[in-house]
Computed example of a mutant assay.
Amino acid sequence: MRYIIIGAGAIGATIGGRLAESGTESVLVARGPHAAALRANGLRLTTADGTRVHRLPVAEGPADLGELRPDDVLVLAVKTQDAVTALDTWAAAEVAGGGTAAQRLPVVCTQNGVEAERLALRRFDRVYGVCVWLPSSFLEPGAVEALCAPLTGMLHVGRYPSGTDVTAGRIAEDLAKAGFEAPVVEDVMRWKYGKLLHNVANAIQATTGPEPHPAKALLAARAVAEARAAFAAAGIPVVTDAEQSAARDGKIVPPPGVRGGSSWQSLRRGTGTVEADYLNGEISLLGRLHGVPTPVNDTLRHAANIFAREGLPPGAMSIADLTVLADEAVTRR
């Protein structure tokens, strides 16, 4: 199979680069200065094993590849706020032998949150979810870091909305060859909802900085408590903390030091958008649908979006000020 990585950022480029190292064909899809850097200098991928440069094919869209191949796998690795544009672009691409990508090819969703799979299933016949545990950084064109060891990351793979099949197994085998642990699971969304409990804190890190602080942990715990209440009201099953620890402990160990996560990186790169609508916003949506108050998540979503729209630098807000805003939102309920 050939993997077309739609969105060669921190996650996409790490997966594409690692696949290439293991001898699996992959193509990086990128735009602007990042695409130019990848074409001119290759992908500079730094992992716990060191830095390597990969000279992979680079495309900006389906037209750069001509007809897609029947053995292609589309890996959707853009942020969720960019998913509709990417899905529409690639769904209509023609596949050799007839038909479109939406009709004939699998699309694999690697986003944080749980919305990308739903967006994909509106367009594609075959959709797969991946729960991504892959701490990585993308801060400059052409360069990505993924420094965990002994494994680069863990990628639970399954059909959406549930189940497994031969394709899921083949994808998992290729990922395992590339240095990831890739369990095939019947209930991939249960894992993704569990990951979302961690991701609701992304907005705290983005707005107040990645450095640990007791007040940040307390605010994050309040956001998680709202999320758990919303999941319970909606009847959504979630993996337990014990299941997650058993799966990851000792396998994905980050290096010493503090690094910013995906939302912090979006602000650092000045992308103008952030994924809070699909992280904290997912909790807000469930709360409104099922009568569960979510003022902390409402506040975090709002604050992160202001930072993105106004181009504010990550970490420019104090945790004290952010907590005051959350407290005020609670009082207004």
Rank of each mutant, 00 (worst) to 15 (best):
residue 6 I to F: 13
residue 6 I to Q: 04
residue 13 A to E: 13
residue 15 I to N: 14
residue 16 G to S: 13
residue 22 S to P: 07
residue 24 T to F: 08
residue 26 S to T: 14
residue 26 S to H: 09
residue 31 R to N: 10
residue 31 R to D: 02
residue 34 H to M: 02
residue 36 A to Q: 15
residue 45 L to A: 09
residue 47 T to S: 04
residue 53 V to Y: 04
residue 54 H to C: 08
residue 56 L to M: 09
residue 58 V to Q: 11
residue 72 D to E: 12
residue 74 L to K: 14
residue 79 K to H: 06
residue 79 K to Q: 08
residue 89 T to W: 09
residue 90 W to G: 10
residue 91 A to N: 10
residue 94 E to T: 14
residue 99 G to S: 08
residue 100 T to C: 06
residue 100 T to V: 09
residue 104 R to T: 15
residue 107 V to L: 11
residue 108 V to C: 05
residue 109 C to Q: 03
residue 109 C to Y: 10
residue 110 T to H: 15
residue 112 N to V: 01
residue 113 G to M: 03
residue 114 V to F: 02
residue 119 L to W: 07
residue 119 L to N: 02
residue 121 L to A: 13
residue 124 F to R: 09
residue 127 V to I: 01
residue 128 Y to C: 07
residue 136 S to E: 08
residue 138 F to T: 01
residue 141 P to V: 07
residue 144 V to L: 09
residue 145 E to I: 00
residue 154 M to E: 11
residue 155 L to H: 02
residue 155 L to C: 08
residue 156 H to Q: 04
residue 157 V to C: 14
residue 157 V to G: 15
residue 159 R to F: 01
residue 164 T to S: 11
residue 169 G to N: 12
residue 172 A to T: 10
residue 175 L to I: 08
residue 184 V to Y: 04
residue 191 W to N: 06
residue 205 Q to A: 14
residue 215 A to R: 02
residue 215 A to D: 14
residue 216 K to W: 08
residue 217 A to C: 04
residue 218 L to S: 02
residue 222 R to K: 02
residue 223 A to I: 05
residue 223 A to L: 06
residue 225 A to G: 01
residue 245 S to R: 13
residue 246 A to P: 01
residue 250 G to C: 09
residue 251 K to M: 07
residue 254 P to N: 01
residue 255 P to D: 00
residue 255 P to T: 00
residue 256 P to W: 06
residue 256 P to M: 07
residue 258 V to M: 03
residue 258 V to A: 03
residue 266 S to K: 10
residue 268 R to A: 15
residue 272 G to Q: 03
residue 273 T to K: 03
residue 275 E to S: 00
residue 286 L to P: 11
residue 292 V to E: 05
residue 299 T to P: 13
residue 299 T to L: 11
residue 301 R to T: 13
residue 309 R to F: 12
residue 314 P to I: 06
residue 316 A to I: 12
residue 330 V to I: 15
